[in-house]
């Protein structure tokens, strides 16, 4: 699984390839619902998180939760304040609900942990995903190193988003 992640040292700003790296060894382990919990940071399903919340909290490791892209706002609010990583499932390239979920998590619910795009994640979406607040991407196919270049394809961004609180006209002198 090719994982791309924003460097910890990178400031929050519009996408550029130098702010991202390909991660070879991910500290997080994705755990199936019927698998035993190993030591270390784990990503579990929402149902497992709910069922074993106390057990997970007692382990002294970080908790990540994998959620569908139609997770309701009240659930997002609850998760935003209680876990370190949220992995949002992108079922298809065409289904854009994850983008609004990410915006809500960052702006409305103040989520500061890692927001990871999983599922159908292709290089040509990375810049949009990064702008709405994702900072890690499990690429579903292709070379992660090649995909980094996509962050530099467009350097002009008219809108404010999760990466940039101001629209272009408030950031730059315009004609």
């Amino acid at each position: 699984m090719a994982l791309i992640r924003r460097r910890l040292s990178a400031p929050l700003r519009e996408p550029r390839s130098s702010d991202y790296e390909v991660v070879d060894t991910d500290a997080w382990l994705a755990i199936a619902d019927d698998a035993a919990l190993p030591a270390g940071d784990v990503i579990v399903s929402l149902s497992r998180f709910r069922a074993e919340r106390e057990l997970l909290a007692q382990r002294g490791a970080r908790i990540g939760v994998r959620i569908p892209n139609d997770t309701a706002p009240d659930v997002l609010a609850e998760l935003a304040s209680s876990v370190s990583l949220l992995a949002i499932e992108l079922p298809t390239q065409r289904d854009g609900r994850a983008y609004t979920v990410a915006r809500w998590l960052r702006q409305r619910f103040g989520f500061r942990g890692e927001l990871r795009a999983v599922g159908k994640v292709v290089r040509d979406q990375l810049s949009y995903l990064a702008r709405v607040g994702f900072d890690a991407f499990e690429l579903s196919r292709g070379s992660a190193h090649d995909a980094l270049a996509s962050f530099d394809e467009l350097s002009v961004h008219y809108q404010a988003s999760s990466d940039q609180p101001l629209p272009l006209w408030k950031r730059a002198a315009r004609g």
């Binding site: 390239q93 065409r94 289904d95 854009g96 983008y99 609004t100 915006r103 810049s127 949009y128 995903l129 702008r131 709405v132 467009l154 961004h157 008219y158 809108q159 988003s161 629209p167 272009l168």
Partner: peptide, 14 residues
């Protein structure tokens, strides 16, 4: 036009 051009949240609407 400018607001909607490459708006990252709304490129994959229903």
């Amino acid at each position: 036009r400018q607001y909607s051009t490459f708006h990252p949240e709304f490129a994959y609407l229903p």
